[in-house]
């Protein structure tokens, strides 16, 4: 391999210091090929990045949960047809086409995993955290959900059953955590502040009103 030195370029010592890593170069290569073939629109690609970097995130899901806590009719709709109920709040889009809401009760705690890969309800939760995509979570959420919950600092009563939902490309789940005590009369916004991302995956509980995030 020819080694680049700066012979003849002493006037500019910043020369030749751009480096594209292998993965970055491969992505650019693919993008070039796909653009030339007319299979992608680079502007659309940029819009997708912007959307997922800044516009969708777990605040959307928190608003859904807060409404389910305070509006029985919405809660019933969410239980019956989560996709439509969620879309009515303006949260629709890719990977949210087939949603199911699962409701925590004193007797049942729900937890979501994707053992296959990393299926996740983007419109309500944004993109998944690293641990959700990691091999240990993907296997242990099924084999040892109580142990996984303990690692997240969640200890459930012995007689609470844990139901683990395995997401697929066709079905995504949103956990509706139990509404914390002492939240009567709180506004939707105040309630939404108590709904953490993890509580909607089932690896956490909703926060108590006085609890720091």
């Amino acid at each position: 391999m020819h080694h680049h030195d700066d012979d003849g370029h002493h006037h500019d010592h910043h020369h030749h210091d751009n480096h594209l890593g292998e993965m970055a170069a491969r992505v650019r290569a693919l993008e070039t090929i796909l653009t030339e073939k007319g299979l992608i629109d680079p502007a659309a690609v940029d819009t997708i990045i912007e959307t997922y970097e800044s516009r969708v995130g777990p605040r959307n899901g928190a608003a859904v949960v807060a409404k389910a806590w305070s509006d029985p009719e919405f809660r019933a709709w969410l239980a019956r047809d989560a996709t439509a109920a969620i879309a009515s709040l303006g949260y629709a889009g890719r990977q949210g086409e087939h949603m199911q809401a699962v409701f925590n009760t004193p007797g049942v705690h729900n937890m979501v995993v994707c053992t296959l890969c990393s299926c996740y309800p983007w419109p309500v939760l944004g993109l998944p955290p690293v641990w959700y995509k990691s091999p240990p979570y993907r296997s242990r959420a099924v084999s040892d959900p109580r142990g996984v919950l303990a690692e997240f600092g969640v200890t459930l009563p012995e007689d609470t059953a844990i139901r683990v939902w395995d997401s697929t490309a066709e079905m995504r789940y949103l956990v509706v955590p139990m509404r914390p005590e002492g939240t009567d009369g709180m506004s939707g916004e105040q309630l939404a502040d108590l709904v953490t991302r993890n509580s909607m995956i089932g690896t956490g509980l909703a926060l108590a009103p006085e609890q720091p995030r």
Binding site: G21, M23, A24, V27, R28, L30, E31, L34, L39, I40, D41, A44, V45, D46, I48, I49, Y52, E53, R94, G126, L127, P129, V130, W131, S134, P136, Y137, R140, V148, E151
Partner: peptide, 28 residues
């Protein structure tokens, strides 16, 4: 056992965002 949770950005490097978006766009 599980990776620690941090306040991680959605994408750690720009190429990851590009790769993500390419798949979403191709599916669309």
């Amino acid at each position: 056992g599980l990776p620690k949770e941090a306040d991680e950005p959605v994408f750690v490097e720009p190429w990851q965002a590009q790769a993500f978006a390419l798949a979403v766009e191709l599916n669309a």
